[in-house]
Nucleic acid binder design. Structure first.
Lengths: 149, 149
DNA sequence: TATAATGATACCAAATTGGTATCATTTAAA
DNA sequence: TTTAAATGATACCAATTTGGTATCATTATA
């Protein structure tokens, strides 16, 4: 199956959760892990990765946690996936054409490059402001009661 | 990295090679492996898989080999990739939404479904008649001399 | 009957994946 | 000053996947 890893999916849940808070809010890895059903140890590592990738800001120490490094409108699904998964390439030859023994006369290469472009364009245009807004539409209950689990 | 496997890339080379022969031509796995730089044992397995997937016809016995099961215009890059790689899903939730604990209130799911559709549409529209034609344009030398390596 | 091809499958080492745990550091608060 | 609670970094692990090889059975031709 051509699919992102489970880690990348977890990362999208994490960013979505942050994007649904008031901008600037700080939240701990533990809390998000519990609310979004992510194994806590793994969530810890993913938060760190997302911070190193520049998508999150971290505050150490008691009362610390993470917050978005940019407004949700400036974080795309592509950003999140590539932060965890590495580049979306579709076929290795799109980023390392010199390693393919069939280049430069391979007609399939051109199509992989084009398909990669199509996919990255799409994922790059999906941002988390839009996703958070849609999340509120899909789950209105969360806005009118105790959210604690 | 989000990428197809090397096997799927090999499979595309195989189908391209067949598509560049006169339609109906039979060729052995050994020959294609040598010409397209695919490890021979692996090529054997890939040919079998492609035949089982309905993309190739096989003839057993001395003088046997493989030929395309359909005209190259009716074989897409998507067909070949999915024959080897399994379905192009992008995220597991696009084919197994019931296994995601965040459904049916997940706004990211909808975008994965849409992105998957965009990618599959693109790859489904690239067919091997076009690729073979482009291959001839890119490598005119092969048509005017001894092709043996 | 020998040869040359595929069908099916078992096998293997290496890499990746999904997940846990630990120790060090930082910060806030008792 | 000490404790608690958070992140930073990293080591570790089992299970799966990947890339590749090899083998035996079957089929068909000469």
């Amino acid at each position: 199956m051509l699919t992102i890893s489970r880690k990348a999916d977890y990362a999208a849940r994490i960013i979505l959760h942050l994007a649904m808070q008031p901008f600037g809010a700080t939240i701990t890895a533990r809390e998000v892990a519990a609310e979004r059903l992510i194994p806590p140890s793994l969530a810890r590592r993913l938060f760190s990765l997302l911070a190193r990738a520049g998508l999150l800001k971290s505050c150490q120490g008691k009362g610390g946690g993470f917050s978005l490094a940019r407004p949700p409108a400036e974080i795309s699904l592509l950003d999140v996936v590539e932060a965890i998964e590495g580049p979306v390439v579709l076929n290795r030859c799109t980023i390392e054409p010199e390693e393919c023994p069939l280049m430069p006369h391979c007609p399939v290469h051109e199509q992989w490059v084009a398909a990669r472009h199509v996919l990255r364009e799409y994922l790059g245009q999906v941002h988390f402001q839009q996703l958070a807004q849609r999340g509120r539409e899909l789950n209105p209950a969360e806005t009118c009661g105790d959210e604690g689990g």
